[in-house]
Every structure is written in structure tokens, then in C-alpha cells.
Design a protein around this nucleic acid. Structure first.
Length: 425
DNA sequence: TCTGGGGTCCTAGGACCC
DNA sequence: TCTGGGGTCCTAGGACCC
């Protein structure tokens, strides 16, 4: 049987786990620590009770946040990744789950070599307790015949209190469970597919389950068929994460609109530096550097413009200055004066491993490449040890404002910085 | 529904080959 | 002049996920 584990309000739970004094209090995590305007990413149930919702723009709910003194944390992905790694580790050490894999930062799949329903439920409950004790993060568990059905079981574990966070869905209960599940809550059925299906009066997961395979294929193509097979108990989705990412991007929505090329150059340089670092961290190089720009899509009183361009490199690289130069060249191609820009980003693609770089017949200089590698290694070491601001390109000139919140929490790296470590008295 | 960010895979159509 | 058949590769756009 497939086990699915989903962390409850993961980002918020991580912050509370490292700040026990906030247990039972309203806590929000928002991505408002950098240049972005920011939206709410995660909320504890106490914060949800105030009417706050995931996706709310921070500026719109600022009054509620301040009135109820909600603790707002800037999103700190590295910390959440560390805690999810710890979760992986404690489950593997416990040894009850086979083939335990990470699907996303807060979701996991594995296999339980059991058939008896009550045994499955007890084992899943044991795993849940162990995770919560070792990480401080509450989780929900679902067990069934396939990945999608495992997620269906977890949906029940979360939506019905009586399950206490653990739901086992055996073969003879599948149809009953699918009958109460809205079609748009099925994993793999997004907004577009849900709308299409609803036009054909397919409103629940059971309606989809009862369709013929060829009908599903015609409407939703191969991925729809995979979901359909999963609902019928045949594991068909690939949950194995690729070893290396095939594209790496870094983008932000700016706090203020700007029409200045100099400002945009500074943003694009900063995003290139960040993307190049991610590229080196996975020991890759890239051949394509793309840049995109757009105006504020929510301001219909202003003229809209959006575009992107790609610079192809002759030799694959992960050198910050080479990638930044390429990005600035692409920016120059698409920049038009007199527009108010709100968002920009850099995307690195055509990624390959840094172990076998195809040289350019005429232009490559192995000596330069060795120097570049050493320089990047030194920069990465410095910024890891002393912070990202330690050494910068000349074109990076930006300062970032802080949001205007009474209970805004300082960025703390309890999992990586000895000075931020949690104190136990 | 709406002031995020970062990914993946699939499909259709065009350009090209023999 | 005659209205084939069988491929590959690339790209943009769309759909999905967290």
C-alpha cells in the first residue's frame, strides 16, 4: 500500500516549531523579505480563524495583521528544506516505510508492506507520532492503492476530524470516498480540466472514475489517463524527482514600479547572480540565459507591455559575470522606455553537467575557464561563510525596504547559523 | 481569484530530412 | 505533370504541481 504524508501548514509549522512561545498563536509566513510586494504563503489555524487566507497580498490584510498582532515571518526556504530533510531522515531511521521518497518540500510517499486495514492505520499513526515528536511539525497521513488515492486518503485525514490525521482507504471503500470528493480537488485535475469536465457534468472524482478510458484520453490527454488509472488503483504517476533541475529561474515583483533601465539592470544583475549560484550548487552549466519583463497587470489604467529574450552562449558556463553579461544583453533587447515595469526575472536553461563542457572550436580558452572556476569557488565560499552581501558585482546597487508590520519577525536561520540556534532553558 | 515564485511535462505545428 | 509516405527536431504555448 502507498503511504502519503503531508505536513500541515508547513512553513508556519516550521516557524512555530522553532519558536515554541508562538504555539497556539496566530502566525503567518509571507514572501515579503526581498524586493517583492508579497503574499501570504502559510497560516496557522489561529491565523486562519481571523479570516486570513493563503494568497492574500500582505498590503491588503496589513490592518488585520497589525490589529491582532499576528507574527509575520519572512519565508525562509532553506530552513524549511532542512526540516523536511530531517523528516526524511527520522522516517527512514524508524524503518517502517519502504522506498520512502520526497515529492515536494512538504509531501512524501512510501510503501507499507501490510494488508490489514487496522494494522495499516496503527502503523501510519506510529509514523505520524514519531515525525511530530522528532520535528515538531504536525502531519497528515493517507494510505491507499496508488499515489493519487493516497492523496485522496490524506484529503479525508485533513477534512474530517474523526480520523485524527490518519486515513486508510482500502479497495472496497474507494468508490464511497471518491463520491464525496469534488473533481477540482483531485490531484492532477487543475482549473482548466475541472472546468472542462464540469461542462460534461463530471463533478466528483467518482464521475471521472466511471468514465471510459478513451473519453478521458480525448478530453484530458495522457496525463488525464494517468490520473484515471491512479483512481482505479494502478500507480501511474512518476514521483521520482530529477537529479538535476532542467531550468533554474529567479524573479521578483518589485515594491515600486520603475521605468529606469539602470534600475532594471541592477535587478537583472541581482537575479542572474542568484540563479548562477543555484546552477553551481547543483554542479551544472547552462547555454541559454533568458530575461523577462512585465508591467503591472493589475493596473488597467496603465499601458501594458511584457516580453522576453534569450541569449545563447557559445560555451556552457556557470560563471556569474558571463551569465550576467548575457542577461543584460537580453534585457537591452526587450527594454522599451516609458513603461512602468513591475516584475522581471532571469531563467537559465539548456543545462548540462559541469563535468563535460563542450568547448567552442575557435573561442574557448581553457586557461580562462580554469580561472573562472576558481574565482566562482572563492566567491561561493565567501558568500556562504559571511553572507550574500560580502562580495557583489558593481552593477548590483539595490537596497530592499522592509514591510510596515508591527509584529514582523527578523530573519533567523536556526538550522544553519550557530548564532540563531534555539535556546533551551 | 488575483500585487508569488519556482518548477515539470505534453502537444501541436513548423521546418527539415529521405 | 502527378495531390506520397515516413521520419526527426525544435519551439511556443498550455496545463499541471508545490
Amino acid at each position: 500500500m502507498i503511504l502519503h504524508i503531508d505536513c500541515n501548514t508547513f512553513y508556519a509549522s516550521c516557524e512555530v516549531a522553532l519558536r515554541p512561545d508562538l504555539q497556539g498563536k496566530p502566525v503567518a509566513v509571507a514572501n515579503c523579505n526581498e524586493a517583492g510586494g508579497g503574499i501570504i504563503l502559510a497560516l496557522t489555524k489561529e491565523a486562519k480563524a481571523l479570516g486570513l487566507k493563503r494568497g492574500d497580498p500582505v498590503f491588503k490584510v496589513q490592518d488585520i495583521l497589525n490589529l491582532h498582532n499576528v507574527a509575520v515571518f519572512p519565508a525562509n526556504l532553506q530552513k524549511y528544506v532542512d526540516i523536511s530533510r530531517r523528516l526524511m531522515q527520522v522516517v527512514r531511521e524508524q524503518g517502517l516505510v519502504l522506498n520512502f521518497k520526497q515529492y515536494s518540500v512538504d509531501e512524501f510517499f512510501g510503501e507499507l508492506p501490510l494488508t490489514d486495514v487496522s494494522e495499516l492505520r496503527e502503523t501510519a499513526a506510529t509514523i505520524k507520532r514519531h515525525i511530530e515528536q522528532c520535528t515538531g511539525v504536525p502531519v497528515s497521513c493517507g494510505v491507499s492503492l496508488s499515489y493519487t488515492l493516497g492523496k485522496v486518503a490524506t484529503w479525508y485525514a485533513k477534512h474530517y476530524k474523526g480520523y485524527n490525521g490518519v486515513c486508510v482507504l482500502p479497495a472496497d471503500k474507494i468508490e464511497t470516498a471518491l463520491a464525496k470528493l469534488p473533481i477540482e480537488d483531485v490531484w492532477g485535475i487543475g482549473r482548466q480540466s475541472a472546468a472542462k469536465l464540469q461542462c460534461h457534468n463530471i463533478r466528483t472524482a467518482l464521475n471521472l472514475y466511471n468514465m471510459q478510458e478513451y473519453e478521458v484520453r480525448r478530453m484530458l490527454h495522457i496525463n488525464g489517463v494517468r490520473t484515471w488509472l491512479e483512481l482505479h488503483g494502478t500507480p501511474s504517476v512518476d514521483i521520482d524527482a530529477p537529479v538535476k533541475q532542467k531550468s533554474i529561474s529567479h524573479s521578483r515583483t518589485f515594491t515600486y514600479m520603475t521605468d529606469s533601465l539602470e534600475t532594471l539592470r541592477s535587478y537583472i544583475a541581482e537575479y542572474s547572480v542568484a540563479a548562477a549560484r543555484k546552477l553551481r550548487d547543483q554542479h551544472s552549466v547552462c547555454l541559454s540565459v533568458s530575461v523577462f519583463l512585465s508591467t503591472n497587470r493589475f493596473r488597467d489604467d496603465l499601458e501594458q507591455y511584457g516580453n522576453y529574450a534569450t541569449t545563447k552562449l557559445n560555451v556552457a558556463s556557470a560563471d556569474t559575470s558571463i551569465l550576467t553579461t548575457a542577461a543584460l544583453k537580453a534585457l537591452k533587447e526587450i527594454y522599451r522606455p516609458h513603461f512602468q515595469y513591475k516584475k522581471a526575472g532571469v531563467i537559465l536553461s539548456d543545462i548540462t553537467t559541469d563535468e563535460a563542457i563542450q568547448l567552442d572550436l575557435f573561442e574557448s580558452n581553457p586557461e580562462h575557464m580554469r580561472k573562472s572556476e576558481r574565482l566562482m569557488a572563492v566567491i561561493d565560499e565567501l558568500t556562504t561563510k559571511y553572507g550574500m552581501d560580502t562580495i557583489k558585482l558593481g552593477v548590483q546597487t539595490l537596497q530592499h525596504p522592509q514591510p510596515n508590520l508591527t509584529n514582523f519577525q527578523p530573519l533567523k536561520n536556526q538550522t544553519t547559523n550557530i548564532n540563531d540556534i534555539i535556546e533551551v532553558k
